[in-house]
């Protein structure tokens, strides 16, 4: 299997993935732009940080993003599971505050498989669930020419090999450009 980004990104449909690190949010935004339908962004209502559609519009159409505010993580997982199983939206992004246990992770996987929709959990570092299909660590990088650089490293992959890439978002063309693949 080759070490190219297209084998792993866009993330596989019908599965639940995980992203962590300071750049996880941009990873989610770019994933929402790649999704071919609406995306549901689930958040717990106590979070004061909010998604800014003015910033999001560089990556995805804010009209195609629905926002769901749940009381706590249990409720959040419940609506995420229901949405994944329904399949009316193609991407469900969950901002998790507590690690998932295996049962919860497995239930999300099964729901995503039934509904043929993709799930993406934004997790704290080291709080991954072993049920996830892939896990990405995203770190924004400083670059003298550009200011959208990221280092995406694939640190868990159930159906492929791991890898790391330097990527950059082309705002004008709304495309993801791979600068180079980082050495392991």
């Amino acid at each position: 299997m080759s070490n190219d980004l297209p084998t792993a990104f866009p993330i596989k449909r019908g599965r639940v993935h995980e992203a962590q690190g300071p750049g996880a949010l941009s990873f989610a935004a770019i994933a929402a732009g790649f999704a071919d339908g609406e995306a549901l962004w689930c958040q717990e209502s106590w979070r004061s940080e909010q998604l800014n559609p003015q910033g999001l519009r560089c990556f995805a159409d804010p009209d195609r993003v629905l926002l769901a505010k749940a009381q706590d993580q249990t409720e959040l997982l419940a609506i995420a599971e229901e949405t994944l199983r329904d399949g009316a939206v193609s991407l469900v992004i969950m901002e998790l505050s507590k690690p998932l246990n295996l049962t919860a992770g497995r239930r999300l996987q099964l729901a995503a498989k039934t509904g043929r929709s993709t799930g993406l959990c934004l997790i704290a570092e080291g709080a991954g669930s072993s049920a996830a299909e892939t896990r990405w660590h995203c770190q924004p990088t400083f670059d003298t020419q550009d200011w959208t650089g990221h280092r995406w490293s694939l640190i868990k992959n159930k159906s492929g090999i791991l890898g790391a890439w330097y990527v950059r978002w082309d705002w004008a063309a709304r495309r993801l450009r791979v600068v180079s693949s980082a050495s392991e």
Binding site: P53, L56, D63, L66, L67, A68, K69, A70, I79
Partner: peptide
């Protein structure tokens, strides 16, 4: 489940 007003759009 979470109240219709909690599902929002920009």
């Amino acid at each position: 489940r979470i109240g219709l007003e909690n599902i929002q759009r920009f």
